[in-house]
Design a protein around this nucleic acid. Structure first.
Length: 288
DNA sequence: AAACAGTGCAACCGCGAATTC
DNA sequence: GGAATTCGCGGTTGCACTGTT
């Protein structure tokens, strides 16, 4: 398996980009478009490897990138999405228009990870596919696999970035109207995740910061770990609140989305301890 | 004012998946 | 069908900047 040579091995520039390099890259992509990163540096007159060019463009130079501080609403959304998706930064970034995966990853690592403990690591993709691939997730709920494997492997589907051209986002977390922001992401008609996001109102909304604080100071019957283990019932029969439940709670009650349904199935499968690996094709449409 | 520690972020690295030949 | 190539991702590093002693 061949790998792209590292910049250091071919004597190319490394380190911080200069304004001139930025200009060359931006001008080239503006006139020729993205892609073909391998040949791009040479054609653009840059002494950089393609990988470096791609990174610079994706994380810094793209015109749709939103600079500036992460807002409280975005902060909140990142926490919820991280509870749901784990360290799949590109996926999380796809729900935060104008934010890059690198930015969110940095934000999490430098700030949020200090506020919130990391859930158990399960984001590593398996090296080879499991022989156990269910036809559908729901089928498995009623028909536990005959051949149960001892390992509990959950396949984390590959993250898919939402392209700026295909995304339909209206008024997300950007304006003074953010008291009742609406987030709509619709691509190819496959999924329409629409949420009424009311960050200031506590009406009908669980405050996960308070829940988390309660877990930490021992005033709640659940632990912080329980909050990650969505839907778990603690000793006194109380259901521990989960970050993920709250995320889903923002959805339109009357419009039970595919996302929500599949997520429920996913949780049930994981909580049931099945050695389930969801095939990427089963979940791909949820990630777009 | 200097030294040190902590923080934030851009960039790099290595890997696996997808694509091409 | 398999090797080579390219792409995209998450983890990690290095360094500039800021705060503290």
């Amino acid at each position: 398996m061949g790998r792209a040579p590292c910049c250091s091995k071919v004597g190319l520039h490394r380190g911080p980009w200069t304004p001139k390099e930025d200009s060359l890259l931006t001008n080239y992509i503006n006139s020729h478009g993205e892609g073909h990163w391998r040949s791009l540096p040479k054609q653009a007159g840059l002494l950089r490897c393609g990988k470096s060019c791609r990174l610079r463009w994706m994380n810094y130079l793209r015109p749709d990138i939103k600079r500036g501080n992460i807002t409280a609403q975005e902060d909140d959304l990142i926490i919820r999405l991280h509870a749901l998706l784990g360290n799949r930064w590109s996926l999380i970034a796809g729900r935060l228009p104008g934010r890059t995966d690198n930015e969110i990853k940095n934000y999490w690592n430098t700030r949020l990870s200090k506020k919130i403990p990391s859930p158990p690591k399960n984001t590593k993709r398996p090296k080879k596919p499991s022989p156990l691939v269910p036809a559908t997730a729901s089928k498995l709920l009623t028909e536990p696999p005959v051949e149960m494997e001892t390992k509990h492997m959950i396949h984390q589907p590959k993250a898919v970035r939402i392209g700026p051209l295909n995304r339909n986002v209206s008024g997300l977390l950007t304006s003074s109207e953010s008291n009742n922001d609406t987030y709509t992401s619709s691509v190819s008609g496959e999924i329409n995740m629409s949420s009424n996001y009311n960050s200031n109102s506590s009406e009908g909304e669980v405050d996960h910061h308070a829940n988390f604080a309660a877990a930490e100071n021992g005033s709640a019957p659940w632990s912080t770990g329980d909050m990650y283990n969505s839907g778990i019932y603690v000793d006194d029969g109380t259901k521990a609140p989960s970050f993920s439940d709250q995320l889903l709670g923002y959805g339109d009650e009357g419009n039970n989305t595919v996302w929500e349904k599949l997520y429920d199935e996913y949780l049930q499968l994981t909580n049931a301890g099945y050695g389930v690996e969801l095939d990427q094709s089963e979940t791909q449409h949820l990630l777009i």
